[in-house]
Amino acid sequence: MVICAVHVPESADAAVDCLAGGGWIMGGGTVVMPLVNSGAAPVTELVSLRRAGLDGVQVRDGVATIGAAATFTAVGEQPELAFLRPALRTIASPTIRNQATVGGNLFVAQPYGDLAVCLLALDATCEIAGPDGRRAAPVADVLASGVAAGEVVVAVRVVLPQPGTWYYHKAMRRRLNSAAIVTVASVTSADGGMVDSTRIALGGVASRPVRAVSAERLLRGRPLTHEVLTEAGEAARGDIDPFDDAYASAWYRARVLPVHLRRAFLP
């Protein structure tokens, strides 16, 4: 469809008001604009978050509050979020990272959305604005079922992981700027060499980022050894529903999942 209006609201509340007229929320435009350019966008109105004051990244008392319109570059520049830099470097190019936003990444189709995989592993919370006010929801819920019509994710809250508990690995066809074959992100802590808590999120292996709950169950109370991680990776095949695309077949993704899950912890 032909775009008839691009709204550029200057606050979150104004964005919600604009959205009441229908249309799509647009963060950095890296997913919406390709559809607009090819005439495939099924909407006539866009609501850009570029000027809505939602691009800040603040850290206080061990909690990061990341505005939905914060770019990947802005996230990487925040010193307290330095643990995410290796992950950010695996996503698109520096140019696209100047545009792509944290909020937008929650709504992209797999095999994109590696930052959403990280946010799922971090058990992030989404702040959502809507016609009836504000609410908070686990990022897992937003990834699973989106938000209601008329609602806008305005921020994502992340409890910073303890040092040494963050793990990330992405298998792709090139070292830079390529979509996921398998992405693994995890917050895992060990006590006396044994895993006492773990959250593992996977990308590239289902229609949306998923938790590897079977692998998590297997890891608890056990050490992060080659054997245990391979066993956990094989168990994680029960948590995925992979797809074929130009990057890899569903068969291949399932085949290599245990290797990459292990490499997230033992490179």
């Binding site: 890296t30 604009m33 350019n37 570059t73 100047n98």
Partner: peptide, 27 residues
């Protein structure tokens, strides 16, 4: 026109952006 080739890259406030992905009203 998809943000994949980079030939439309310009600097917006000093940072490279794919200008084909920027609705001009927003900048």
């Amino acid at each position: 026109a998809q943000g994949a080739c980079g030939t439309c890259t310009v600097l917006v406030d000093g940072r490279p952006e794919a200008s084909c992905l920027v609705a001009v009203e927003t900048v």
